[in-house]
């Protein structure tokens, strides 16, 4: 499997050693995230709910596309892709 770049928002950086960007391996977004949670256990619950769904407080993109409009966690990724995580930005 080939490594994929994952961009990490400031709020999650303390959980991944402080870096803004890292690489993970997997054929889908879900596999990337599983790998990241295995490496960085504090990420558990930050990206994926206990039910195994993408957390609604986080936006995840494959390049410029929101994975909610692709295949959600099943969205395939390849080496040239960049996956970006951004907290959902909302209020009242």
């Amino acid at each position: 499997m080939t490594p994929v770049e994952v961009r990490v928002p400031t709020i999650l950086r303390p959980h991944v050693g402080g870096v803004a960007s890292l690489t993970a391996e997997g054929a889908t977004i879900g596999e990337l995230f599983d790998g990241l949670v295995a490496r960085y256990p504090n990420l558990r619950g930050q990206l994926i709910t206990e039910e195994g769904e993408l957390h609604r407080f986080v936006n995840v993109y494959r390049n410029d596309d929101d994975i909610r409009y692709l295949g959600r966690l099943e969205t395939p990724v390849s080496e040239s892709d960049v996956v970006s995580i951004i907290p959902a930005v909302a209020g009242g």
């Binding site: 928002p9 400031t10 936006n59 993109y61 970006s84 930005v89 009242g92």
Partner: peptide, 27 residues
């Protein structure tokens, strides 16, 4: 009464900030 930043606009902002060596610092 509420807002949610459009997700396409959000990635557009992140991409542009990245290209300038900047970070998203607020809303």
């Amino acid at each position: 009464k509420t807002y949610t930043v459009d997700s396409r606009d959000l990635i557009r902002a992140l991409r542009d900030a990245d290209s300038k060596g900047l970070e998203l610092i607020g809303v």
